[in-house]
Design a binder for these strands. Sequence first.
RNA 1: GCGCCAAUAGCUCAGCUGGAUAGAGCAACGGCCUUCUAAGCCGUAGGUCAUGGGUUCGAGUCCCCUUUGGCGUACCA
Length: 610
Amino acid sequence: MKLVHSFRIVANASMMHWRMPMLEKIRSRWKLLVERELVAYAKEQGISTKEVESASLVVQSPPKSELGDIAFPFFSYAKSFRIAPPVLVQHIRIRMEKRDDLPNGMLLAAGPYLNVKIDMAALAEATAAAVENHKERYGHNDSLAHKRIMVEFSCPNTNKPLHLGHLRNDAIGQSVAAILKANGADVRKVNLINNRGVHICKSMLAYQKFSQGETPQSSGLKGDHLVGTYYVRFAQWEKEDPSALDQAQAMLKAWEQGDEHIIELWNKMNTWTIEGIEETYKKTGITFDQYYYESDTYKLGKDKVLAGLDKGVFYRQEDGSIWIDLAEIALDKKVLLRKDGTSLYLTQDIGTAIARHEDWPFDSLIYVVANEQSYHFKVLFYVLQKLGYEWASDLHHLSYGMVNLPEGKMKSREGTVVDADDLIDELSEMALAEIKAKEREEEVGDAQKTSSAIALGALHYYLLQVNPLKDMIFNPADSLSFTGNTGPYLQYMGARICSMLRKYREAGAIVDHINFDGSLLVLEEERALVKLIARFGETVEKAAAELDPSVIASYLYELSRLFSKYYHDHPVLKAPEPSLIKARLTLSAMVLQVLRNAFSLIGIPFLETM
RNA sequence: GCGCCAAUAGCUCAGCUGGAUAGAGCAACGGCCUUCUAAGCCGUAGGUCAUGGGUUCGAGUCCCCUUUGGCGUACCA
């Protein structure tokens, strides 16, 4: 399975030791020591050290905690040394143990693996200090420092409200932007409003014919929903009146010629839709740094296509249309401008990309767009390259899979499209009902606010736990469930820790004066938690390298599940010794901080109580 | 037809980029609330990693064939 995006932007060489996360530092230190010993042994045995050096040592994590914390498989050295891996492991272990410059820790020979049990007390204390120092920035790094990355997502049409597909798009875009930012990049989130074209005219025309001047105020409908009803109305009318489409096209022409009445109507309806959509963004916590409008950029696209014609990279057909030959990238031919001179989707995107690079010269531009458009982006990037823009190679299509329903595809004709606002409202109602059923309305404070936060947590986690490239099935029943591997489960973990910390303070913060002693965390779960917390930074980096929020989602679930089991089995506030209370409290607070930080990367609202 | 992508438990998804006995959740069954919030915890059951071949010490992971499914291949967006 090859699902990894090859995100082209090159990370900075930030891997200098002084800023390397603690766990990585320990791993690479041990790696160097094992390699040193292998080379020394090879010399003694009269084996070419080149052979040994070229088989670079692999670093892994053992599957079980009894086997230690770091694993070095020795399979690949068997040939050079001409002995079985387990034998070599024993030799190297014994030799290394004679050294007096080893860091704290223990070497374990586990068959063909040489494993290390690390000094967990030191790791726990260093990690606790790092969490304490960096707080909401713990886990952040500067691997993408000074990189300007533009992320385009959402891109709604102004003829209908957002649906489930947009929600996946928005969730991915918002999350990827946050992840890149956490890696130090200078990120600019941009939206592109598809506000021109025949499809926009369809809802306008139907409105003109059938609305009798209805407005969001008079109808009580959100603007985008109101406009959407006329888009649907057009589809009905089109069946009754075959001239409907011609009329819509005539309207588009009039629009392009600047007909005042039509522009006025267009402005009015666009405003309604955009205001409605922005309300949805507000509800889902989606924000942008800048909006682009196709009505502003399509002309630039036209100009650039004509310029390309002059340069000879495109050609004109007899009927007047302008084309590009895609033979170089093993594709066919593609129209860039219609014979009547009007622009196409591709033309507009050419203009938009150029305008963006002029506005904010980026090191990379990531388009978050469904995979059904991969052909479009392949062509777009090629066209821009042909036009001579060197930055064309910095464009990246983050292609995500379709959202389907258990019954199959969403189809507007069959009315199976899941509306974004309806879904969020339904989720909120379910969450509210749950709060009431648990009789936690008072406890929770603002039950309304809490339930929408839970709804959002459920939705975003559901959408982001799947690798973006894969098609996913959105099962409404599952998404409405708040138990198991869900957003609310994670939120609940955070709320429980908060509650525990509140109780501690109410009881007088008894162990505040005691120093945190990492050596007290000896339980298997505690070691696993410390390691996992120490790995958060790597996880954030991996998520950026792969442009994949599901990396964060999986990490969060693992952390929560581990902590959940831990605090169920082992008392924190009622631990037998004050110093142990302190140690466990510190560990819990670390988990809490990481939950908070990770939540913000995948759009899960943090809740102090629920 | 051609191109791109996918296939892991009944269902929805992981699987640290080729390593130790393939993991979770849901659904099913059983156990745990005078003990830091039961939106929780524990246990049982569930797998020929679509099929066949190849690469090598070693394959769910890499390569090829086949099958099935999705998307694309518009002077729609």
